[in-house]
Amino acid sequence: MIQLSRITKAFGRHEVLKGIDLTVGKGEVVAILGPSGSGKTTLLRCINFLEKPSGGTVAIGDFKADGKHPSKKEIHALRLKSAMVFQHYNLFRHKTALENVMEGLVVVRKIPKEQARAKSISVLEKVGLGSKIDAYPSQLSGGQQQRVGIARALALEPEVILFDEPTSALDPELVGEVLEVIRRIAKEGITMIVVTHEMGFARDVANRVVFMDEGLVIEEGDPKEIFARPKEERTKQFLKRITPEASYSI
């Protein structure tokens, strides 16, 4: 279970997060939506302290870290319990697909190499890249790179996987293959927090959507409910803009 309470974050004078509370249960898939600049990505990055919150607490499982004054040990512990899939993949450029996935298992989890290798291969097969294990990131398409990124996170068996706009950098025709993989692992009951602009994906896969704007959670709840009958005015406006088919009459 992940519990964020009263998370704030300011970059200089600019307040990006203005006190966010969010609880994610085990096995839950939560989609965070909202216009750009609303603080979704910053919130996600506060969970594994790639961004240090200005205040609040982050808890994963029974482990809790103070946002403002975390110790190195606390940050490390949170990172061991989570994994992240990045918008720009961030695969280790000098390592093959297999080495990318093995790296965390061998270096961080200290799993013997042979065992880590076998496990990494099976996870890469799961994301449909069994034939590409020896390819370097530069030899893979965006969609394939992102699937390696997902495999790298998945192999660590973290308590939660954080997805930071996993399809935003992809060519439109490659979005499908990545969403398909995420959809599949969502069904396996892995806890996921997904920042996304893919409304269809959020509606179909998420158990809950959280709508953010200007550093605050505006509305949250069942995706079918929110997409069909948003309560807040800002949610309505946003959904209208992002699903234009409703606003056009031809």
Partner: peptide, 18 residues
């Protein structure tokens, strides 16, 4: 070296020296 490389390393639980 892209900053994202370091972030990815942190995200899988590496320490700074690692």
């Amino acid at each position: 070296v892209n900053r994202g490389q370091l972030e990815a390393a942190y995200s899988i639980g590496m320490t700074t020296p690692q």
